[in-house]
Design a protein around this nucleic acid. Structure first.
Lengths: 205, 205
DNA sequence: ATATATTTTAACCAAATAGTTAACAAAGTA
DNA sequence: TACTTTGTTAACTATTTGGTTAAAATATAT
């Protein structure tokens, strides 16, 4: 019988704790002490593994951004037909976000605090959404006459809005509608099918 | 010729400065010194007019929340027919938010940081969205057969997502699409008509 | 076993930051 | 004018917080 290592290394504990604290409090609201407590270690250890709060934050933020965008691009830039792409996108996106519901708000908020820093320095632009191909595809379908004459840009914004916003407004939605965690998840599950149906019903001829 | 007072009172200067700083940096990222500088006054004056950072923040946050929700409710609860309500909502909402584009992200983010505090203590629930009547109205239309068999809840979420998200993601959108302020505003202007068209095309029989 | 390198901690430090105080200035009032 | 209230400031204080240090504990190599 081989012994399998299940204990987290200190670095993993730190990263998990940092992720939790940064995502719930944001960069400026997070305290190094809170992260240390959450990880069950001494504060000095944070600085031993990651030099500063900024460095630690950068790791967490990049990981979050990686999770948010690359998958979007791989779908946007694939060769699927339009309707299938729309279905695939909301399915995939909601699946990933259901496991990390606070991620979109976290990323959007940090970007908003200092767009310059985040959008230029931290990212190579390969991580950013590249909707070009998707936009062209819509335009082509419009010209072919297979869908109604819709604005590609607005259709893009619609697809993303419908998929992302329910996560950004999670707390709000749960509170105003009185939903517990399970009910919320169930509704997000439904949306995987609801969104493409809603969109396709609107644009198909 | 009567002299008209155009100078701001100190209190107004503070509120304007606090609004600007809090909305761009958030509660935890904002510095009292920044607010004082922005208002062109001494830091001690902030404490003279508002006792603490928290008190000052509460004023700003409430004002922001007031602007965000009551109008929504007055539309949701009016007696307009459904389609007109949808048109009216996106028109009204986008008009208000175009003047305060960072407001939704600010409010959603602060709520997220501490839902308990914000949603219970600070608000009397009269400010929160009350979508009940709107949901019932949709259900009625479905039963009458005037629109397709859609989920009222998802339709509600769709309308709000489509209207609010483009403001929440403003920085992101501008950066990835390379839009300046004017172009962004123009697109939001278009959305006032695009959103209701998009929705109604989807649900009408 | 001994020595060396790595990991972890408690105690400390310096900078940042919310909040206070006491004195001064301006405006209102008798 | 004298006096009181209101508004404003510079300088200061207390606390929070990111970061450091030096020593102890643990693991690793010889």
């Amino acid at each position: 019988m081989v012994k399998i290592k299940t204990e987290k290394t200190t670095e993993e504990k730190i990263l998990a704790a940092a992720k939790k604290v940064f995502i719930s409090k944001g960069m400026s609201g997070a305290r190094m002490q809170d992260i240390a407590d959450e990880a069950g270690i001494n504060k000095a250890l944070l600085h031993y593994y990651f030099r500063s709060k900024e460095k630690l934050f950068e790791v967490i933020f990049l990981e979050a951004a990686q999770k948010l965008f690359p998958k979007i691009n791989s779908i946007f830039e694939s060769d699927m037909p339009l309707f299938q792409k729309i279905e695939h996108f909301s399915e995939e996106y909601i699946t990933v976000m259901a496991e990390n519901p606070y991620l979109p708000l976290f990323v959007l908020n940090e970007i908003n605090q200092d767009p310059e820093t985040f959008l230029n320095k931290i990212w190579g632009k390969q991580n950013l959404p590249r909707p070009q191909k998707f936009l062209e595809q819509i335009e082509k379908e419009v010209r072919k006459g297979t869908i109604k004459k819709v604005s590609p840009l607005h259709l893009l914004m619609n697809l993303i809005s419908l998929s992302v916003f329910p996560f950004v407004a999670k707390s709000m939605i749960q509170f105003t509608l009185g939903l517990d965690e399970l009910q919320y998840r169930a509704i997000m599950e439904q949306r995987k099918k609801e969104i493409p149906k809603f969109i396709i019903d609107s644009i198909k001829k």
